[in-house]
């Protein structure tokens, strides 16, 4: 008898439950409207200081920078408040004696070189960073934390000093050339510095933690059983790496590449110290407009172009990341 009752009751339950739940929720929402509004006000108040500072000392200045790029340059720095597109024209043309515009690729070349160097930096960082990230991810958990610690620490030391260190290593009488000459491997110092090689090495060094950390984050989450499954199905280590590990680490690889590429493109210190002032990148070109050249609108225009490129790269990446369901949060440092 008791079983029959239980059986009779069962079909009723699932019908009753969905009716009551939304009703209860609706009632709660209606009653809470005041509380919700109070909650929003509290949040707004809490956000005000941080957002206020960022808007006042970052967003407003960026808007002002955009404005400046459309003003006329004053002779000894600063601007004259007169609308002008000269800054953008100057990017591609020079004015001839008769005021006609001649195409000039000086600046375009600097942008192209910056792109090239940043791409090279990204590639080298990936080549060095991926094995390191994989190695760390394969260690027992207690060592992993420590190794990641070791990867992060240099990031927090002074960038200037870290680049300066490479001068000590790379210059003609630096550690590397001295050692090689002492060993008799070479008789003349190798040109390791004040060229694209030196810049790339310095850029890789500056930003490599940005490559390792997101790749590590992807690899650490990787379910090792998937790799075992690949082995089980006949894949050797190389195949497992190519077909399973790397594809699954792709979000980390892409994030790392973007995070290395973006700061490389706007680098100032590294080309300044390791490029020897002759191998300009965008950052140095911009700085020049506020230093020796005293052409603020042009400097602002260059900065704006750089910003636009960087934001474009970030937006494309964010869209990709959203599509593949990975969150930007996974790649934060710290």
């Amino acid at each position: 008898m008791s079983t029959r009752e239980a059986q009779a009751e069962r079909p009723v339950e699932p019908q009753a439950a969905p009716q009551s739940a939304p009703q209860a929720a609706k009632g709660a929402m209606r009653g809470d409207l005041g509380a919700v509004r109070r909650e929003m006000a509290r949040r707004l108040a809490l956000l005000t200081p941080a957002m206020g500072i960022i808007i006042l000392v970052m967003v407003v200045p960026l808007a002002l920078m955009l404005t400046y790029s459309f003003l006329t340059s004053a002779r000894y720095g600063g601007v004259i408040w007169e609308f002008s597109t000269d800054a953008y024209l100057q990017f591609l043309f020079v004015r001839d004696l008769d005021d006609s515009l001649l195409f000039n690729d000086t600046y375009l070349r600097i942008f192209a070189r910056s792109f090239g160097l940043s791409l090279a930096t990204m590639g080298v960082a990936l080549l060095i960073g991926f094995p390191a990230a994989l190695f760390i991810a394969l260690q027992p958990p207690k060592y992993r934390t420590m190794l990641i610690f070791l990867v992060t620490i240099p990031f927090w030391t002074n960038l200037l000093v870290r680049n300066y260190a490479w001068i000590l290593l790379l210059r003609d009488r630096g550690l590397i050339n001295n050692t090689l000459m002492d060993l008799g491997v070479i008789s003349q110092p190798l040109p390791l510095i004040y060229n694209n090689f030196g810049i790339t090495l310095g850029l890789v060094y500056s930003f490599i933690p940005f490559m390792v950390l997101p790749i590590y984050a992807s690899l650490e989450k990787l379910d090792w059983r998937l790799v075992e499954a690949a082995y089980d199905l006949g894949a050797n280590r190389w195949e497992a790496l190519k077909r399973v590990i790397i594809p699954l680490a792709k979000p980390g690889i892409i994030a790392g590449s973007v995070l290395v590429f973006v700061p490389s493109l706007g680098a100032y210190i590294t080309p300044q110290l390791l490029g020897g002032g002759r191998n300009l990148m965008i950052g140095n070109l911009i700085q020049l407009q506020f230093g020796a050249s005293q052409n603020w609108p042009f400097g602002a225009a260059l900065a704006f172009i750089l910003l636009a490129i960087v934001l474009l790269a970030l937006v494309l990446w964010a869209l990709r990341a959203r599509r593949s369901g990975t969150s930007l949060k996974e790649v934060e440092i710290g």
Partner: peptide, 22 residues
């Protein structure tokens, strides 16, 4: 927005801030 200062190239922030203060 809170992460904005991390995403914008330092050189751009530097230029913008300089212009702002001047």
């Amino acid at each position: 927005s809170l992460a904005l200062p991390l995403l914008i190239p330092e050189i751009v922030t530097a230029v913008a801030t300089l212009i702002f203060f001047v």
